[in-house]
Simulated assay, not measured.
Amino acid sequence: MAGDRTRRLDLQQRSRLAGEAAAAAAEVEHALTTPADATSAAFFDVDNTVMQGASIFHFARGLYRRDFFSTRDLLNAAWKQTYFRIAGVEDPEHVAEARNSALAFIAGHTVAELEEIGEEIFDEAMAHRVWPGTRALAQMHLDQGQRVWLVTAAPIEIATIIARRLGLTGALGTVAEHVDGVYTGRLVGDLLHGPAKAVAVEALAEREGLDLARCSAYSDSYNDLPMLGMVGDPCAINPDPRLRAHARSAGWRVRDYRTGRKAARAGLMLGSAAAGASLAGAVARRRLLRGRG
């Protein structure tokens, strides 16, 4: 019992530290530096809300292609991405594993290096995965003179690139520790996930003078209820089953930009098998070429 309480307190402390670090690291982009509606803003989750799949996986795959880490690491990430897309929910065990290993593969690399590579990876693997419907919602808020922030467990550097390339105000993301511009491979607190997102939004709102009752929030995941529940206008985007049920009972808006969800999930299963075969073939070819070299 005491051990469970200690773990809960530890999680709360890590979440708060992660949220505060994310808010402190957030920089305002140039899309809307002097908003017409200064006390209202919109907050968007990224994975499966703004773009299809997990942004950290797309980023990791891009790093793999640049020989940042091993095939085994990528296959492990691929399995978690496949589960995420088919099940439509985040497994708590996967989140815990991610916390223990998150960003370890960037240890020793510089912030400048990751930012430059991140720009390339956005063009290669992320830009075409953005949901047009969600992008239109974000633009609607911008057109109304409101600021629009991404709130994601992805690294703050990647989140900021996505925000900038979409013309949004800025981003809140997971903060990786770095010393003299070089990553240590450790997180500041925890992943920006679940309760940590609410802490980050609250801290940002206080800093920017936002009235949360006049703000909107968008997510696909039940895990983001802390963030969704703190604003006056929550909306479920491509929701997982638990969030869909909660949104309906609470009278929240629901938007689903996926088409033929059941068929899509079956297709994803087949596609995942094909992707696995393709990846295995690519690995074999790489090893063969290296052997010839």
Score class of each variant (00 low, 15 high):
residue 161 I to V: 15
residue 27 E to H: 12
residue 91 D to C: 04
residue 85 R to V: 00
residue 43 F to A: 05
residue 215 C to H: 09
residue 128 H to R: 13
residue 251 G to N: 09
residue 274 A to G: 04
residue 260 G to T: 01
residue 242 R to G: 05
residue 216 S to V: 06
residue 254 V to K: 01
residue 160 T to Y: 01
residue 221 S to E: 02
residue 57 F to T: 05
residue 93 E to R: 08
residue 74 L to F: 01
residue 89 V to N: 01
residue 245 A to F: 02
residue 52 Q to S: 13
residue 154 A to W: 01
residue 192 L to A: 13
residue 3 G to C: 03
residue 94 H to S: 12
residue 175 V to Y: 01
residue 12 Q to D: 15
residue 132 P to V: 06
residue 197 K to F: 09
residue 20 E to M: 06
residue 55 S to N: 10
residue 46 V to S: 00
residue 228 L to S: 02
residue 241 P to Y: 00
residue 106 I to Q: 07
residue 176 A to R: 02
residue 220 D to N: 15
residue 96 A to M: 07
residue 267 G to S: 01
residue 275 A to D: 03
residue 51 M to S: 12
residue 8 R to V: 12
residue 208 E to Q: 13
residue 207 R to S: 14
residue 175 V to F: 08
residue 195 P to T: 05
residue 263 A to P: 05
residue 264 A to M: 13
residue 31 A to P: 09
residue 193 H to S: 00
residue 113 E to D: 04
residue 263 A to F: 03
residue 184 T to E: 02
residue 232 G to I: 07
residue 281 G to W: 07
residue 236 A to K: 03
residue 115 E to L: 13
residue 258 R to H: 10
residue 73 D to K: 10
residue 81 Q to R: 08
residue 259 T to N: 06
residue 252 W to Y: 09
residue 1 M to Y: 08
residue 265 R to D: 10
residue 13 Q to W: 05
residue 96 A to E: 12
residue 181 G to R: 01
residue 169 T to C: 12
residue 81 Q to N: 13
residue 91 D to W: 08
residue 190 D to Y: 14
residue 256 D to G: 08
residue 217 A to S: 15
residue 35 P to Q: 10
residue 131 W to C: 00
residue 93 E to Y: 11
residue 199 V to M: 07
residue 48 N to T: 08
residue 57 F to K: 08
residue 273 A to R: 10
residue 170 G to E: 02
residue 158 I to L: 15
residue 6 T to H: 13
residue 156 I to V: 15
residue 84 F to I: 00
residue 68 F to R: 07
residue 67 D to F: 12
residue 41 A to R: 14
